[in-house]
Simulated scan of single mutants.
Amino acid sequence: MGQLQTGPRRPQGLPLGSHPLFATEDLDEARDRVAQVYCDHRLEVMGRAPLAAQHNRLDGQDLSVNVLTYGAKTQIAPGPLEQFYLFQFPLRGHASVNSGARGYEIGDGRGGVLNPDEDVSMIWSEHCVQLMLQIDRRALEQAARAEFGLPQGAPLRFDGAQALTGGEGRSFLGLLQFVISETQRGAALLGQGSALGRQLERTLLVGLLQSQVRLPVAGAMGLGQGHAPRMMRLAEEFMRENLGAALMIEDIASAAGTSVRSLQAAFRARHGCGPMTVLRDMRLERAWEELSNPGADTRVTDVATGLGFFHLGRFSEHYRRKFGCSPVETLRAALRA
Rank of each mutant, 00 (worst) to 15 (best):
residue 74 T to Y: 06
residue 13 G to E: 13
residue 330 T to V: 12
residue 195 A to N: 04
residue 124 W to I: 00
residue 60 G to K: 06
residue 302 D to T: 15
residue 121 S to C: 07
residue 1 M to P: 15
residue 14 L to D: 10
residue 222 G to S: 08
residue 273 C to M: 15
residue 20 P to Y: 08
residue 251 D to T: 12
residue 76 I to F: 07
residue 305 T to D: 10
residue 25 E to Q: 14
residue 198 R to H: 07
residue 153 G to A: 03
residue 120 V to H: 00
residue 326 S to M: 05
residue 71 G to W: 00
residue 274 G to H: 13
residue 44 E to R: 14
residue 49 A to Q: 11
residue 63 L to E: 06
residue 38 Y to G: 04
residue 122 M to A: 12
residue 39 C to P: 01
residue 332 R to W: 09
residue 306 G to D: 09
residue 275 P to T: 12
residue 321 R to P: 00
residue 170 R to D: 04
residue 207 G to H: 00
residue 176 L to H: 13
residue 207 G to E: 02
residue 282 M to W: 10
residue 333 A to W: 11
residue 211 S to L: 06
residue 130 Q to R: 06
residue 35 A to K: 02
residue 71 G to K: 04
residue 130 Q to F: 05
residue 77 A to F: 02
residue 129 V to E: 14
residue 312 L to T: 06
residue 59 D to A: 03
residue 181 S to M: 13
residue 38 Y to C: 09
residue 4 L to T: 13
residue 4 L to C: 04
residue 264 Q to T: 10
residue 314 R to T: 14
residue 276 M to K: 04
residue 74 T to M: 12
residue 221 M to E: 14
residue 335 L to G: 02
residue 116 P to Q: 02
residue 195 A to R: 15
residue 288 W to F: 14
residue 301 T to S: 15
residue 121 S to A: 15
residue 79 G to T: 11
residue 206 V to K: 00
residue 205 L to R: 08
residue 328 V to G: 15
residue 263 L to D: 05
residue 49 A to F: 08
residue 260 V to Q: 03
residue 33 R to G: 03
residue 306 G to V: 10
residue 54 Q to M: 14
residue 153 G to F: 01
residue 305 T to M: 08
residue 334 A to P: 04
residue 209 L to H: 02
residue 288 W to I: 00
residue 201 E to F: 10
residue 62 D to C: 08
residue 41 H to S: 11
residue 48 R to P: 10
residue 110 R to F: 11
residue 245 A to S: 15
residue 216 P to S: 11
residue 41 H to Y: 07
residue 24 T to V: 06
residue 214 R to M: 12
residue 85 Y to K: 10
residue 129 V to A: 03
residue 145 R to F: 00
residue 294 P to F: 15
residue 105 E to M: 12
residue 223 L to G: 06
residue 57 R to S: 01
residue 54 Q to I: 05
residue 215 L to A: 02
residue 14 L to A: 12
residue 183 T to G: 09
residue 311 H to L: 05
residue 15 P to Y: 02
residue 192 Q to G: 09
residue 199 Q to D: 13
residue 105 E to P: 00
residue 225 Q to W: 08
residue 74 T to I: 14
residue 121 S to Y: 00
residue 173 L to D: 03
residue 333 A to C: 02
residue 68 L to T: 08
residue 113 V to A: 03
residue 299 R to D: 13
residue 255 A to E: 12
residue 81 L to C: 11
residue 327 P to L: 00
residue 262 S to I: 04
residue 243 L to Q: 05
residue 205 L to K: 05
residue 207 G to Q: 00
